[in-house]
């Protein structure tokens, strides 16, 4: 929605068409890069699983990661049942010096 409102504002100012073109172009380039591939989601899910497992016992098979897309916004939805919390302070991978 935000994109649209902004876009309309830009369109209605009666400016040169090339100015409109430049602004549209900038949006389009950002937009194009929002496309997400399946492999990337799978990688992200694996990484997230690893981090979450340090804090919680989770059922790895039931975890799901999805992109919910709507006009103007995209949301990353992570869903995982928690079996138990790990109460010990998690081991730091990179302990501060």
């Amino acid at each position: 929605m935000m994109f649209n409102a902004l876009f309309k504002k830009l369109m209605n100012r009666g400016e040169d068409s090339k100015e409109v073109a430049k602004k549209r172009l900038k949006f389009a380039l950002v937009y194009d890069k929002l496309e997400i591939k399946d492999e990337m989601l799978e990688d992200l899910q694996r990484d997230l699983m690893e981090v979450i497992s340090r804090y919680f016992e989770i059922d790895r098979k039931q975890m799901s990661l999805d992109i919910e897309r709507a006009e103007g916004t995209s949301a990353l939805i992570l869903n995982t049942p928690i079996l138990a919390a790990r109460h010990k302070k998690p081991q730091q991978n990179n302990p501060p010096a």
Partner: peptide, 13 residues
């Protein structure tokens, strides 16, 4: 085609 039609900011799928 999306930019030529001015619909580029509405693409979801």
């Amino acid at each position: 085609l999306d930019v030529v039609m001015g619909l580029e900011n509405r693409i979801i799928f």
